[in-house]
Simulated scan of single mutants.
Amino acid sequence: MGRIAAKQTYIPTLLRLFRQFGYEGVTLAKISQATGLGKASLYHHFPGGKAEMAAAALAEVDLWLETSILPILSSKVKPIEAFELMCQEVSLFFNKGENDCLWAVLLLEQSSKNLFDSQINRAFSRWIEAIANVLITAGANEIAAIQRGEDAVITIQGALILCHGLKDFTPFQRVIKRLPQQLCQDI
């Protein structure tokens, strides 16, 4: 197995660890234990150390956005169908609310704040813009469409945070179910 292919096998584990413990909380010892790699092997695959490992996990979230969410929102289906499919993918990716959002975890930590802010900003902006474009195409005005896109992402992110605080994932599932109708209201 080539170095790149081998490196890819560890990314789901890195994503899980950074979601669970954040940038500060993930130690090389935890990564080594979870991947089964010694420190030397970790640095072989990720010469940039923990920052490169976090970047690889973040790239996986960005890939999900690029391959699972944005294509749905740029498809030629009815807006309600696009938003229902988007919400299904969101629910799947966040395991019905049980998985933390890596974007939020990294943004809220001071130690990783400047490392990933622009990449996360770009991802959120693209998602909001894609939602807004669906609404604009359906006849909504641009300002209202952008605000609804922002509200949708706020709803998803807020539900994730609330569910983890409550240790109850039903609020996430409820808002994901309602979100397509809310987005399409009055269009």
Rank of each mutant, 00 (worst) to 15 (best):
I120S: 03
S112T: 06
Q119V: 00
L135H: 09
A130N: 08
G139Q: 11
N114A: 10
S125Y: 09
G139A: 14
N133S: 12
D117S: 09
Q119Y: 02
S111C: 12
S125W: 01
R122I: 04
N141Y: 02
V134T: 15
L135K: 09
S112Q: 07
A138C: 11
R126N: 15
N141H: 07
R126V: 08
R126D: 14
R126I: 11
Q110A: 09
A130I: 02
F116A: 06
I136W: 02
N121M: 09
E129Y: 01
Q110T: 05
S118W: 09
K113P: 05
A123Y: 01
W127F: 10
E142L: 12
A123I: 00
S112G: 05
L115P: 02
S118L: 13
T137N: 01
N141G: 01
N121G: 11
N114D: 13
E129K: 09
R126L: 14
N114M: 07
A123N: 03
Q110G: 02
E142N: 15
F124Q: 07
E129N: 04
A123E: 02
I131H: 05
I120V: 08
N114G: 05
D117G: 06
E142K: 15
A138V: 13
E142M: 10
S125L: 06
A130F: 05
R122M: 15
G139V: 14
S111H: 11
L115K: 06
I131Q: 08
V134G: 13
I120M: 04
I120K: 05
F116D: 02
N121A: 10
W127N: 08
S118V: 07
E142G: 11
A132F: 03
N141Q: 03
S125Q: 12
E142A: 15
N114I: 01
W127P: 00
N121F: 12
S118Q: 14
W127S: 11
T137W: 00
N121P: 02
N133V: 08
R122V: 08
Q119E: 13
A130D: 07
F116M: 10
S111E: 14
A132S: 10
R122A: 15
D117H: 13
I136G: 08
L135M: 06
W127T: 13
S125K: 07
Q119T: 05
I128E: 00
A140E: 09
Q119D: 05
E129Q: 08
K113S: 15
L135V: 08
I120Y: 03
S112C: 01
A138S: 11
S112F: 04
A140D: 06
N114H: 09
N141S: 10
T137R: 01
A130W: 03
N121W: 07
R126Y: 13
V134N: 14
N141K: 04
K113I: 08
E129H: 10
S111L: 12
I131A: 04
R126C: 14
N133I: 04
L115E: 07
A130P: 03
S118H: 13
V134Q: 13
S111W: 08
A130K: 03
W127R: 11
A123K: 04
N114L: 09
K113E: 14
N114Q: 11
I120G: 04
A123D: 06
A138W: 11
K113F: 15
V134Y: 14
S125E: 09
F124R: 14
G139K: 13
A130Q: 03
S112K: 11
I136C: 00
S112V: 04
